[in-house]
Design a protein around this nucleic acid. Structure first.
Lengths: 146, 146
DNA sequence: TAGGATCTTGCAAATTACTCGCAAGAACAA
DNA sequence: TTGTTCTTGCGAGTAATTTGCAAGATCCTA
C-alpha cells in the first residue's frame, strides 16, 4: 500500500490504512458504512476524510467503486472485484455471478460496437430467482381471480 | 394515459400531461431537463411537481428510469426503451445498442441463476470505440518513452 | 351538473449525500 | 532534525430530492 501511494507522491496515514482495511473487511460498502466501521475502533475520524481517502485509494488502484442502485456508490477492494452484482429490483438482494457469465456479451459489444465493457462497474438489475417466482405465482392468481 | 391513471384512482392533470409529453419528446432526460422543457411553455410548474409526476407516471407504467452514471436517474417513455445504453467512462458519450445484443447474456443469467435481467435499467459501462483507441495509442507511446 | 371526497399542486423548509476552504497537524525526503 | 508538502478535522456550502401543508383541481355520484 505504501508503495502505490508513494509512487504518486502521496502519504501513508493511519486513516488511509483504516479506510482500506475497512473496505477489505466489508466486501461491499458505502462510504457511510466504511466510516461507521472505521469509527467503531477509531471514533475521531471524520466523514470527509473517509470520502477523500476512498477517492485517493481509488486513484492509486487499491479500491474500486460500483453502482448498485439508487445513487450511492459502493466500494470494493480492487483485488476482490471478481464478480458481477445481480441486484433484485424487488427485494434488494445483491447476488453474485462470475464475470465469465458475461464473457460472450462483452465480446459481442467489442466486436460489433468497439465498446470495451467493464461489467462490474454497474450492477445487473432484475428479479432474483425468489422474487421472480413470487411474481409468477401472483400473476397466475390474479389471472384466476379476475 | 387517462386510462392507466384512473385504474389506480389517480387523476389526469395538465401537469401530468405536460410531464409525459416532455419525456416523450426528449428521449433521455433528467428530472431537471424535463422541468426545463415543461417550463418553456408553462413557466408556473413546480420542480417538485415534476419529480412527483415522474414517479407517478413510472408507477402506472408510462415512463421508466435508467441509471446512466454518477447518481441522477434519466427518464424515458416506456414505449421507447428499446435499446441498451453504452456509457463511456472516459468521454461520457452515451451510445446505443439493440437489446438483442444482450439476449444470450440474459438467457445465461436466467438459466444458471434464475435471475431475470432488465438490461436497460443500468447503463453498460466501459470505453467507447473512440476512447478505447485513444487509450491504446497512449499506452503504446508511454511504453516507448519509458 | 352541482357537491363533495380525495387527489394534486405550489411553496417553503427539511433532508441527504457529498464537497470545499482553511488552519493546524502529520509524513517523509534530505 | 527540519522544512516542504500532503492530510486531517471542522464547519460551512452545495446539489438534488423529498416532505408538510393549505389551497386548488379532478371526477364520481346522485
Amino acid at each position: 500500500m505504501a508503495h502505490e501511494l508513494h509512487e504518486k507522491g502521496l502519504r501513508l496515514t493511519p486513516q488511509r490504512e483504516l479506510v482500506l482495511s475497512a473496505v477489505r473487511s466489508l466486501g461491499h460498502a458505502t462510504p457511510e458504512e466504511v466510516a461507521e466501521k472505521v469509527r467503531s475502533t477509531h471514533p475521531g475520524i471524520n466523514l470527509s476524510t473517509v470520502y477523500r481517502n476512498l477517492e485517493t485509494l481509488e486513484n492509486v488502484g487499491l479500491v474500486l467503486h460500483t453502482h448498485l442502485g439508487h445513487g450511492g456508490a459502493t466500494y470494493h477492494a480492487a483485488e476482490e472485484l471478481t464478480h458481477l452484482h445481480l441486484v433484485c429490483s424487488d427485494c434488494g438482494a445483491i447476488g453474485d455471478a462470475p464475470i465469465d457469465a458475461a464473457a460472450n456479451f462483452v465480446n459481442t459489444l467489442s466486436d460489433d460496437y468497439g465498446f470495451k465493457t467493464d461489467v462490474t462497474h454497474f450492477a445487473i438489475y432484475g428479479l432474483c430467482a425468489k422474487c421472480a417466482e413470487k411474481n409468477d405465482q401472483k400473476k397466475r392468481t390474479d389471472g384466476k381471480t379476475k
